[in-house]
Amino acid sequence: MTPAPLPSAPASGPAIELVDVTRRFVTPDAKVMTALRDFTMTVERGEFVCVVGPTGCGKSTTLNLVTGLARPNVGEVRVFGRPITGISPDIGFVFQADALFPWRSVLDNVAAGPVFRGMRKAEAHDKARDWIDRVGLKRFEQHYPHQLSGGMRKRVALAQTFINEPKILLLDEPFSALDIQTRTLMQDELLGLWSDARASVIFVTHDLEEAIAMADKVYVLTAGPATVKSVYTIDLPRPRVTAEIRYEPAFVDYARLIWNDLREEVQRSHNQASAAAAA
């Protein structure tokens, strides 16, 4: 990991900014639907931000705006101070669903990014072996994804993303399909990788405890259309062990405080859904 910034990145200022962003969709029945409204968010360099909010409120949409896969209708998204034009090579994305290439071995999956970016195959494989080793899958290089467990596949996905050395890391409920024990292990692993890489992170989750255990800041979103309801700074010491930190009194206080806030929105989102179903 080279902490020296590339010439493309100005040396100071926040890593990610969403400024008064609105994003609308045209639904299949030709109605306009607002997913994000007046959304403003800032992620400092090296900061770990978690985003929580009711289901369907617009969390994934927020991440897509930062990748450049989607454009805002109103407002501006900036990465390292520059408005987004296309997909930035500085960004890594870990998907909620399995997005590995099932026809490629673990080794070729992890080497995919560097090869796409023009690295020679042998060199990419060496680099990939190193990353596979770091996520503890040394014996599985030649396996295909369907021969791995869910937790192992997530490890491959992390290695596939980290090998590109992204300065900005976006994760969309990456661990939600895993059991509790595996999830805790993966959280610690991610924190370890992050503290080596010092990337700026947006981590979307519906699990409040996960958010508090990992984040520097927790953003609570409103029910859709999403705006930022409140922001909490999590002042817990690092390095953290996620399995243990949840028993700290300070952690429990944060959880109670933020849950009070989130509960209202979850309730509101639930009511909206029931109303829509009744209509």
Binding site: L69, F93, A97, D98, F101, A112, G113, F116, Q160, T161
Partner: peptide, 21 residues
């Protein structure tokens, strides 16, 4: 799969590389 295509795009694949891989 849409997620798989998006994944390849973000990993740095060009449109031709996406078609091929």
């Amino acid at each position: 799969d849409r997620a798989m295509i998006a994944n390849a795009q973000i990993l740095g694949a060009s449109s031709y590389q996406i078609t091929r891989t």
